[in-house]
């Protein structure tokens, strides 16, 4: 019984100390003078975090848009309002699926890679030797990756939504024969820039921040063994996914819940 309580207390303390450490980690990485050659390092990371994630984002966006078009048509056609399909596809993507699905894919594709890379650098003493050369690995290794994640995620989410709309168009207009004039007109009328597009972008910024932070911190904090890295990678994907879904509910409630 007492064992159980002390175990419980210990994991509570562990959790709090992880939160504290990850906060200090974030501040130390981002505050102050950036590393020499920061811009070049950032470009390199933008490529591996952002550009290399493009393919999976585009393919997933296309399929999700096509499925939305198909399902939407089947429901709307019963009420004779299948021309509203453009509105439905666009709103679903811009408000919800764009940011959320992109963040989940991002955590799996880029987040896990970031964790494994940094964890392995730690395990092979590359971070230690960088410290002994007098270079702060937080500034040089961690900061460019963090910033690259913050920048990439909203852009990827936008691309996802655009490709998704195109997928909906392909299915709805080209395949199922909805009149393309009403497809676009309906969309234009109902999608509000501030209400929908901007809120979607805010969501994806928040998700990008959280996912990259989790990924980079888990790598940096991992035990320097192969098992430690594998645990850290799993944690990255699990924590990021849960954080994205939980935050999505909170943000949606604040943005669209008329609270």
């Amino acid at each position: 019984m007492f064992d159980w309580i002390s175990q419980w207390g210990r994991s509570g303390l562990d959790a709090i100390s992880v939160i504290g450490r990850s906060g200090i980690f974030l501040f130390r990485s981002l505050l102050g003078r950036p590393a020499t050659g920061f811009f070049g390092l950032l470009i390199k990371q933008l490529y591996s975090v952002g550009v290399l994630s493009l393919l999976i984002i585009i393919v997933s966006g296309l399929f999700i848009g096509m499925v939305l078009g198909l399902q939407g048509y089947n429901i709307l056609v019963d009420y004779g309002s299948e021309q509203a399909i453009g509105q439905m596809v666009a709103l679903t993507l811009v408000r919800e699926l764009g940011p959320v699905v992109t963040a989940l894919l991002f955590a799996g594709r880029a987040g896990s890679a970031l964790t494994a890379e940094i964890g392995l650098m730690k395990a092979t003493e590359q971070l230690s030797s960088m410290e002994m050369i007098g270079v702060d690995p937080l500034r040089r290794v961690v900061a460019p990756r963090l910033v690259a994640g913050f920048i990439s995620m909203p852009l990827l989410a936008m691309i996802f939504s655009v490709v998704g709309v195109w997928g909906g168009l392909l299915v709805g207009v080209d395949w199922l024969g909805v009149y393309d004039g009403s497809f676009w007109a309906n969309m234009q009328q109902s999608v509000d820039f501030r209400e929908d597009v901007l809120n979607g972008i805010i969501k994806s910024c928040v998700f990008g921040f959280v996912c990259t932070w989790i990924a980079v911190f888990q790598g940096y904090d991992s035990a320097p063994t192969s098992e430690g890295i594998s645990i850290a990678t799993t944690k990255t994907v699990v924590y990021s996914s849960l954080a994205v879904l939980g935050l999505d509910f909170i943000l949606t409630a604040v943005m669209f819940g008329n609270l």
Binding site: Q126, M130, G134
Partner: peptide, 23 residues
């Protein structure tokens, strides 16, 4: 401090047991 330590280390060289080259 963290910053002073990084400055102090510029005057030190250390050969790690594993080499620890940047891969």
């Amino acid at each position: 401090s963290r910053q002073e330590l990084f400055v102090a280390r510029e005057r030190m060289g250390m050969l790690f047991q594993s080499g620890a080259l940047f891969s």
